[in-house]
Design a protein around this nucleic acid. Sequence first.
DNA 1: CTTTAGGGGTAGGGTTGG
DNA 2: TCCAACCCTACCCCTAAA
Lengths: 641, 641
Amino acid sequence: MVEMPKMRKKGTISEEDVSALLQRYTPTAVLALLQEVAQLPDVKIDWNALVNKTSTGISNAREYQMLWRHLAYGHALLEKLEDGAQPLDDDSDLEYDLEAFPSISTEASAEATACVKVLIASSLPSDSSLPNISMVEAPLTINIPCGQSSRAPSENSRLSGSMQGTNITIPVSVQKSEGFDANGSTSGSLPARKKRKPWSEAEDDELIAAVQKCGEGNWANILKGDFKGDRSASQLSQRWTIIRKKRKNLNVGGASSNGSQLSEAQLAARHAMSLALDMPVKNLTTSSSIAGTNPNATSSNSAFPATPAEALPAGTNISQAQQLSQQGPVSTLSRMGSLGSAPKSRVTSKKTSAKSTFSSQSTLKETAVAVGARIATPSTAASLLKDARSRNAVHIMPGGSTLIKSSASGGANPLPANHLGAHPNVHYKCAGPPTTSLSTYPAVAPSVSRTGSAKPAAPGVQLAPSPSATSVNMSSEQTNAATSSLAVEYPAKQETKTSEETKVPISGNVPKAKVLEDQACVSSNTASEQVQEDQATLSNTEVVLKNQKAMVSDAKCSLKTETAENDEATIISGEVAESQNVNDNKIMDFPVTGECENQSAANENSGNQNTNEKQTDLPNTATDCGEKSDEVLYKATAGEI
Amino acid sequence: MVEMPKMRKKGTISEEDVSALLQRYTPTAVLALLQEVAQLPDVKIDWNALVNKTSTGISNAREYQMLWRHLAYGHALLEKLEDGAQPLDDDSDLEYDLEAFPSISTEASAEATACVKVLIASSLPSDSSLPNISMVEAPLTINIPCGQSSRAPSENSRLSGSMQGTNITIPVSVQKSEGFDANGSTSGSLPARKKRKPWSEAEDDELIAAVQKCGEGNWANILKGDFKGDRSASQLSQRWTIIRKKRKNLNVGGASSNGSQLSEAQLAARHAMSLALDMPVKNLTTSSSIAGTNPNATSSNSAFPATPAEALPAGTNISQAQQLSQQGPVSTLSRMGSLGSAPKSRVTSKKTSAKSTFSSQSTLKETAVAVGARIATPSTAASLLKDARSRNAVHIMPGGSTLIKSSASGGANPLPANHLGAHPNVHYKCAGPPTTSLSTYPAVAPSVSRTGSAKPAAPGVQLAPSPSATSVNMSSEQTNAATSSLAVEYPAKQETKTSEETKVPISGNVPKAKVLEDQACVSSNTASEQVQEDQATLSNTEVVLKNQKAMVSDAKCSLKTETAENDEATIISGEVAESQNVNDNKIMDFPVTGECENQSAANENSGNQNTNEKQTDLPNTATDCGEKSDEVLYKATAGEI
DNA sequence: CTTTAGGGGTAGGGTTGG
DNA sequence: TCCAACCCTACCCCTAAA
């Protein structure tokens, strides 16, 4: 279809041309194309290959070629291209000599040149990004070898002209370049540009790399520094969610594994990584030293936390020292919670819980480092714990009972994982305040059997945080423990269902009751919150958790667990407490608690009795829970008592 | 599926390893993983959580774990992982000791180390900014060890190829620069904006409690003494405005909408609120005493008012006396008036009023706490108060009766659970502030039976907390305890359903009623607010909470409750209080409380009685509550009075 | 010190083109 | 129809001036 473009060899490019060009393509796209072409090792151009990798947003090889030719040789830009249009044969694509075009302002060309140079010089794949560079400055003073420039042609024409000479002063260039781009000031054509521009792989890679570097959410920074394409922060954000989603789907396989095609950027990254990895070792050593220093300081890192962001809830941590860090950790957990959906996962958590305890941030860092390093000495760990402790230890536990156990005993962790029914639920986490520890637990009581006696798993469960502040929490927890015993009992008969984030209504059918319960405890500060989630579920009716993770368990499941556990209901509770962790973020939403509620089930049991104290505790514990939870607690309590 | 990885403990990492690793994962991914792990606060690792938030691109927890282990301990990287593969249990994740690996070239390692350091140090993910400098670093001047090249497998080939000879400065550098730099800000580090951290429910609770205690606007004080999280004063202020806003919406909106029923819910809430409000008064006093003065000044009220927003200025009432007891009522009333807007609600109040009467704020709090907790022993309570005070301790209990019992006497509590229906309800959680503990409880009273006697667990309940600040809370709790006894009774007949965040209407099916209740206690600080929410729920039919967890109860329930309550407003209050718990998060919205309200069911029982003191407490407890709560409280109070 | 305005960032809903 | 790419609106959080 398209007919061959006419050459306009050696002609100059007029402003009209530019204007038209910019109406159709963004400056960045144009620059990207130039860069891409410039980077090609061979003279011969494989248009199809280029298009596959381009970050210009152009998906049609013919179109890509056409643009190139327009830029390089002044060929006309055709209005339409047929979908399947294939690139034209080109013998000479790079053979034409082009002369600089006077028409363009020297400055403009110079700038453009600079940009191009920078891009090329940097070798950064990114390309587009001019903007970034823009900021660059003097350093940029790059001299582009003639060779290249020549190649770069095109627009270069505009640019090229300038380039060749020698060097372009960088700064200017950058700035200007943008000008160009963005506004197109040059041409002035702003008109619309809205065309929808699919994300190219290159852009995705760039985004991914940027996110890894800067962290999720820091779109502004990414935009400023790392991401070259012309996308807005919100677009980045939006795209990121898509990428994330995709990955998950993919991942199964192993995300990364594919490998096959890696972009250069990736390769480069790997390269770097390899170095980095190696480092670790050294780091350790070093790190320690280093760590010593900065880490803490930095620690602030909050940044990191960022990642975790979610989690943290609690401010608790802070308490202490804050200074340092604190934070971070939590988040993760919390997330987990959310993740929760996957019950099984929890399992891990179990351990965690028991263990989780420690870690401190600072420590963490070190540890991490160490880890990275492969370090990890116990001592280290210990230290971590101290600090960390505060952190979070969240856990989730799905199968409910299971978790519990683990937590309880500590060692064991059975976690059977699963189970038929399943159901996991939750858990938590707590963010402990700094020193505090927390412990909370929810107890779940499945229907029917229940053990009756509960006992407190307490001992095991408990932690002994000590710090004064903590103390409170401690007490609570302990209390809880006691309570838990009570709680434990629950018999529940109900059926509970939990849904996770989803919303599941149960209503209609509700049967009778079931109950669940939990007891959560929370450590003082933070802990509480989380609990909620755990439970959840009961619903005789229907409960749903929309937001997060709800936990559901079938009635049976829960029951089962409990049953087994009965004795240890306590423990369970404990877990619940942990749930608290949940809090974090969004989680909070939930209400988990509500779910907890399930508790209602507890009610049914009614048989329980409580001791005052214990009960009290529970409540305390409960505190965090969502509404439902409370009920449960109550019930539980009652029962116990 | 996957088998366990072998350890390669203490082994060194070979180039081959690196090579293989890089073929599979990008350097950035590896670094990201290291960073992420490093950031974890706890020793225990929640792989699922990590995966959810990771920026490595790895979506499978097992894979993530595997990579970590490979990096940290030299475990083998398995080729395939099943989709659903869950992370392995890890007890030892951080326990292995690893040694540095000689194999790597010094240079390389050094560099890597540097990189890692930077990453960690900077910890900031983001931030970053400034790339400018990315190039910076001389350090970058990396020499690539041969090793790498080897490593760099094919793809890299290109890169690597070039690189090999000596080193390539460039590429590497670039990479580094990017990666590192960014963070790196080490050096340059920009301020990097701190990542935004959403407020958790626990934090909200804590804030609410703190405001109640210290008054609105005294952010600095709150920061010093009560609020544990790491938030700045301005953030507190800002958040407070948001919380206040939400409450209003809730109140109003919710209430209004349904009309009749809601109103009740609202009423209940109000009731609670009233109590809460009252508390303030006392608090003030107390505080004043404590503080000395201020109370008025602080007016802490302001805080209160907030809630009530509408009305009252009255808060003022508070003024005085408070110290202990008393008072509360008045203020309440006044507020009520204001609340007035909702006529019906008032009604409820009536009931309340009668009973509600007593308690003084401080007392209230304590009591409340106690109640919630069921704690009961004074000593305990006291301790709690101290700690908790700040914290939160709220609880809710649905199933009501049961809980109650427990709380109350400690033993007695009849609370039969009841229920046929089940119900759950819920609860809470608390996040305690650091030191604080919290305890809360909700009591639930199931329908019908109830025990009747409640008694005050008082003795136990009371605490005498002393610390000034704390005191308030303490008192509440104690009070509650006492209350609880009373409360306990509730019989409820309703059926309640809860939905969690979701919206589930229950309506249709509802069966009988059950009741729940809770008594929540709140720890001093926080508690109140929450209450509000609870109420809302009531609607017979279906209430849904969209945001969070809503609780629903049938209309009947609610109604019933009220009735019941009359006598014992206290109880209700208690419940209300619990509701408070609800607050938390978004919840505040309500919901929970609402459910609590359901408790109203409790009302039905009516049989309850309260002791003044106890009642009072409730109010205190209520203090926090949302508007609705307030109403309730008021009513209670009135009655009492 | 507190409050307020502005810069971002995220979530969610709606629209539209492929 | 589904999804991706926008757009747009709320809302929230953080920071920095007021």
